[in-house]
Simulated assay, not measured.
Amino acid sequence: MTEEQKAPKIEFPCDYTIRIMGAVTEDFHEVVLSIVKNHDPEHNGEYTVRDSKKGRFQSVVVTINATGEPQLRALHEELKNSGRVLMVL
């Protein structure tokens, strides 16, 4: 990979938006927000939810105060290990 092809570095701290997708359940967004709060205790609780066209899947979009790569890795790992999350973008 050349210098031009490397992904840009993120400067921390920063606002960092994450889209979390999973199957539609009554409490999916609550599970996601609980995990987010574990990694960003100051999170204001704001989120948006969008259902898929057929209504089987749901995405929850949150913006966190990212403090560093370890925090983002740990958040991603806990979301994936929850058994409720299919994808994190």
Score class of each variant (00 low, 15 high):
residue 1 M to C: 14
residue 1 M to S: 15
residue 6 K to D: 09
residue 6 K to W: 02
residue 7 A to C: 07
residue 7 A to N: 11
residue 7 A to I: 07
residue 7 A to G: 09
residue 8 P to N: 12
residue 9 K to H: 09
residue 10 I to C: 13
residue 10 I to N: 14
residue 10 I to D: 13
residue 12 F to G: 13
residue 13 P to W: 05
residue 13 P to M: 12
residue 14 C to G: 14
residue 16 Y to R: 12
residue 16 Y to F: 15
residue 16 Y to V: 02
residue 17 T to A: 15
residue 18 I to S: 14
residue 19 R to K: 15
residue 21 M to Y: 00
residue 21 M to D: 01
residue 22 G to C: 08
residue 23 A to D: 09
residue 23 A to E: 11
residue 23 A to I: 07
residue 25 T to N: 14
residue 25 T to W: 02
residue 26 E to G: 13
residue 26 E to K: 14
residue 27 D to S: 14
residue 31 V to L: 11
residue 32 V to I: 13
residue 32 V to Q: 00
residue 32 V to P: 00
residue 33 L to R: 12
residue 34 S to W: 01
residue 34 S to R: 14
residue 34 S to Y: 04
residue 36 V to Y: 01
residue 37 K to V: 10
residue 37 K to W: 02
residue 37 K to Y: 05
residue 37 K to G: 09
residue 37 K to H: 12
residue 38 N to R: 15
residue 39 H to A: 06
residue 40 D to T: 07
residue 41 P to Y: 01
residue 41 P to E: 02
residue 42 E to D: 13
residue 43 H to M: 10
residue 43 H to P: 07
residue 43 H to D: 10
residue 43 H to I: 12
residue 45 G to K: 13
residue 45 G to A: 10
residue 46 E to F: 01
residue 47 Y to D: 00
residue 47 Y to L: 03
residue 47 Y to T: 06
residue 47 Y to F: 11
residue 48 T to W: 01
residue 51 D to E: 14
residue 51 D to M: 13
residue 53 K to Y: 02
residue 54 K to M: 09
residue 55 G to S: 11
residue 57 F to W: 05
residue 57 F to A: 09
residue 57 F to H: 08
residue 58 Q to W: 06
residue 58 Q to F: 00
residue 59 S to P: 08
residue 60 V to I: 14
residue 61 V to A: 11
residue 62 V to T: 08
residue 63 T to S: 14
residue 63 T to V: 03
residue 65 N to R: 10
residue 66 A to P: 03
residue 67 T to G: 12
residue 69 E to Y: 04
residue 69 E to L: 09
residue 69 E to A: 14
residue 71 Q to H: 10
residue 74 A to Y: 04
residue 75 L to H: 03
residue 75 L to N: 01
residue 76 H to N: 12
residue 76 H to Y: 08
residue 79 L to W: 03
residue 80 K to H: 04
residue 80 K to R: 07
residue 80 K to I: 05
residue 82 S to G: 11
residue 83 G to V: 03
residue 83 G to D: 02
residue 83 G to E: 05
residue 84 R to H: 04
residue 84 R to Y: 07
residue 85 V to L: 08
residue 85 V to T: 06
residue 88 V to H: 01
residue 89 L to E: 00
